[in-house]
Computed example of a mutant assay.
Amino acid sequence: MLGDFNLASPYAAYACLRQGPPLVWDANFCGGAWLVHRHSDVQASLRHPDLSVRRVGGWVSQAGAAPSPRLQAFKGLMARTLVFLDRPRHTRVRRVVNTAFSPKSLETLHSTIEERITQILLGLEQKLQHGPADLVDEVCRPLPALVMMDLLGLEQLPLAIFQVWSEQLARFIGQATPDVPLLMDTQNALLDMADFLGNTSNLREGGLAWQLLHDEHLSLHGRRERLAQSCMLLFAGYETSRHLLSTLFQTLLSDTSKLRSLQTQPENIPAAIKEVLRHDSPIQYTARRLMRDQHWHGQHLRKGQLLLLLLGAANRDPEVFTEPDELDFSRNNQAELSMGHGIHHCLGVALVHLEARLTLEKALPLLSRLQLGQGQRIDLPAYRGWNSLPAQLRESQ
């Protein structure tokens, strides 16, 4: 049912699902999956102890690649990242990585992020003086990449190379069913990333990546588990932020009343970010595998089957959100699920919000002077964001 849905607007497909049963089997999507779309069911599934996040082997098997030492190394790294670990291993690893996103850690990063934003916006404004500029290329892609490199303490990584690595991983994770060429390209990207992060000369001594690799007091087991967490942080912290930033820009530049409301009441920026996350979630779905047979909503679900948890559908459930298709910056959004729920709630959610808030605070005066051109959405079903957002200064300026 979702295999051919409109990537430009999946919400029509979600509305159709809402008219039917709470569980729908789709034989084509992700090689076969139960679609879960109601808010209460998605939220419960995100917390359910009998559902597993381990699914790297399924991705690789679907692609049908021949076994090789490099493919085995790729699977070993991916399977050890925090996002694909179940309890109790997840609890042990998350406790280590959590410290990087504590309020104290983010406070030390605050001024660095502000400096990055100031430099990026200055470069954007200078470019706009000479003609159109792409907001994605100039702001949404470089900012979160640079912030994650600052956070991890990477000294020698060119921005363009990191973006190629990360966006290749996103193409793999964001596709419903990867093929062999996609798998091979992603294998090479992840192993290259791990090689870089495993070379101490590329790391700032005492930085997070250096600590994850060398600090023997951390409860991380083996070199691959240590490298896997740095790879995961570098990738995950980039993808969510860049998609949120692009959606914020597109939303505000397409609705001058919303833009003006934030200019006159900047204290509402955090609420606006939460509402944009709910209204057009950067991550549209996540998945869980059944660890045992169970009956649910009158259906017999078998061990090993996949549940596709439609975060984008849950965030527009009219049972939870009044007029859910409307963008309302005054809405109470405590129930939105864009960043997950339970033990796998997004580790860097506070950083994502901080980047977005500081960016809007500094960018609002410039945004009011811009005219948006025809943008292009990314074409991955798991993600919502923009590949390009061309803009230019208004002629009256």
Rank of each mutant, 00 (worst) to 15 (best):
H130M: 06
P69R: 04
R260L: 08
V97M: 06
S254H: 10
Q250S: 12
E205A: 15
I269L: 07
S338K: 01
P103N: 01
V180F: 07
I173E: 10
R38L: 09
E355K: 00
Q175G: 06
R92W: 01
M78K: 02
E361N: 08
L306H: 07
D4Q: 12
K303D: 04
L128E: 03
L233N: 08
R116Q: 01
S102Y: 04
Q168Y: 02
E155A: 14
A170T: 00
T251Q: 14
T264V: 12
A160D: 13
L367P: 11
R289D: 05
F101K: 07
M148L: 15
A272H: 06
Q374T: 12
F321Q: 06
A44C: 06
A15C: 02
D185P: 00
F5K: 03
S68Q: 09
W210Y: 13
D192T: 13
P324K: 09
S219L: 11
G375W: 02
R302F: 10
E107A: 15
A271K: 11
S246C: 05
A100I: 00
S111Q: 14
L233Q: 05
F249M: 13
Q371E: 15
L109K: 03
L245V: 04
C140L: 00
R288N: 04
A314E: 06
M184F: 04
A314N: 03
S45V: 03
F235R: 07
I378E: 10
S102K: 08
D195V: 14
G31F: 10
V147K: 01
P318K: 08
R204M: 11
L85R: 10
S219M: 11
E114A: 14
C346M: 08
L191S: 08
Q294Y: 02
R278W: 09
P22Q: 13
E107S: 13
R224M: 13
L154E: 03
I378P: 00
S388M: 06
R331W: 04
D134F: 06
Q62A: 12
V36H: 12
Q19T: 13
K362N: 09
L152F: 08
L367A: 02
L360A: 02
A13G: 11
G123K: 03
S241T: 13
A313M: 02
E355D: 03
R94K: 13
R242M: 07
P67A: 08
V53W: 00
G298K: 02
A391V: 11
N98P: 03
L233E: 03
L208N: 02
I269C: 07
D26H: 02
V24R: 14
L182R: 12
L151Y: 02
L157E: 00
L213T: 04
A73E: 13
A100S: 09
A12S: 14
R223Y: 07
A335G: 07
E138H: 09
V276Q: 13
R242S: 04
S61G: 02
S45A: 15
S52F: 05
L259H: 04
M184N: 15
P282C: 05
L367S: 10
R89G: 07
S40E: 15
E205P: 12
L366E: 07
R204N: 08
T200M: 02
W165V: 03
L17Q: 05
A228Y: 04
V164L: 09
R292T: 07
T251L: 11
T251G: 09
L23H: 05
N202L: 08
S105N: 08
E267L: 14
M339K: 00
L191T: 04
F329Y: 14
W25C: 12
V56R: 05
L212Y: 06
Q392A: 12
K274D: 15
S254L: 05
N387F: 03
A33P: 05
F249K: 04
